[in-house]
Simulated assay, not measured.
Amino acid sequence: MHEPVRVVIGEDDVLLREAIARLLTEAGFEVAAQAGDAETLLDEALAHDADVAVVDVRMPPSRTDDGLRAAIELRRLRPETAVLVLSQYYEPRFALDLVAERSEGVGYLLKERVGDVDAFVEAVNRVAAGGSVLDPEVVARMLGRRAAGSRVAELTAREREVLAAMAEGKSNQGIAAALFVTEAAVSKHVTSIFQKLELPQTSTEHRRVLAVLAFLRDEKR
Rank of each mutant, 00 (worst) to 15 (best):
Asp13Lys: 00
Val14Ala: 13
Arg17Gln: 08
Arg17Ala: 14
Ala21Glu: 11
Glu26Ala: 10
Ala27Pro: 11
Ala27Tyr: 02
Phe29Lys: 02
Glu30Ile: 02
Glu30Met: 10
Val31Leu: 09
Ala32Gln: 08
Gln34Pro: 09
Gly36Cys: 06
Gly36Ile: 04
Gly36Thr: 02
Asp37Phe: 05
Ala38Val: 07
Ala38Asn: 06
Glu39Ala: 14
Glu39Asn: 12
Thr40His: 05
Leu41Met: 07
Leu41Cys: 09
Glu44Ala: 13
Ala45Arg: 02
Ala45Pro: 03
Ala47Cys: 02
Ala50Val: 05
Ala50Asp: 10
Asp51Glu: 08
Val52Arg: 06
Val52Asn: 11
Val52Leu: 07
Ala53Met: 01
Val54Asn: 10
Pro60Asp: 14
Pro60Gln: 09
Pro61Cys: 06
Ser62Thr: 12
Ser62Met: 08
Ser62Asp: 14
Ser62Gln: 10
Arg63Leu: 15
Arg69Gly: 15
Ala71Arg: 00
Ile72Pro: 02
Ile72Trp: 01
Glu73Trp: 02
Glu73Leu: 12
Arg76Asp: 15
Pro79Trp: 03
Thr81Asp: 15
Ala82Glu: 04
Val83Ser: 13
Leu84Met: 04
Val85Ile: 00
Leu86Ala: 05
Leu86Trp: 07
Gln88Asn: 14
Gln88Lys: 05
Tyr90Val: 13
Tyr90Gln: 12
Tyr90Ala: 14
Phe94Arg: 04
Leu96Glu: 14
Leu96Met: 11
Val99Asp: 14
Val99Ser: 14
Glu101Gln: 11
Glu101Gly: 08
Ser103Gly: 12
Glu104Ile: 01
Gly105Pro: 01
Gly105Cys: 03
Val106Cys: 13
Val106Thr: 07
Tyr108Ile: 01
Lys111Phe: 06
Val114Pro: 09
Val114Ile: 09
Val114Trp: 00
Val117Tyr: 12
Asp118Arg: 03
Asp118Tyr: 08
Ala119His: 02
Ala119Lys: 04
Glu122Cys: 11
Ala123Glu: 04
Val124Trp: 00
Arg126Phe: 06
Arg126Thr: 15
Val127Gln: 01
Ala128Asn: 02
Ala128Val: 04
Ala129Asp: 15
Ala129Val: 06
Gly130Asn: 03
Ser132Val: 11
Val133Glu: 09
Asp135Ile: 00
Glu137Lys: 00
Val138Ile: 06
Val139Ala: 06
Arg141Thr: 15
Leu143Gly: 15
Arg145Asp: 15
Arg145Leu: 13
Ala147Cys: 08
Ala148Gln: 09
Ser150Thr: 04
Arg151Met: 12
Arg151Gly: 14
Arg151Cys: 13
Val152Phe: 05
Ala153Gln: 10
Glu154Gly: 11
Thr156Met: 01
Ala157Tyr: 04
Ala157Trp: 05
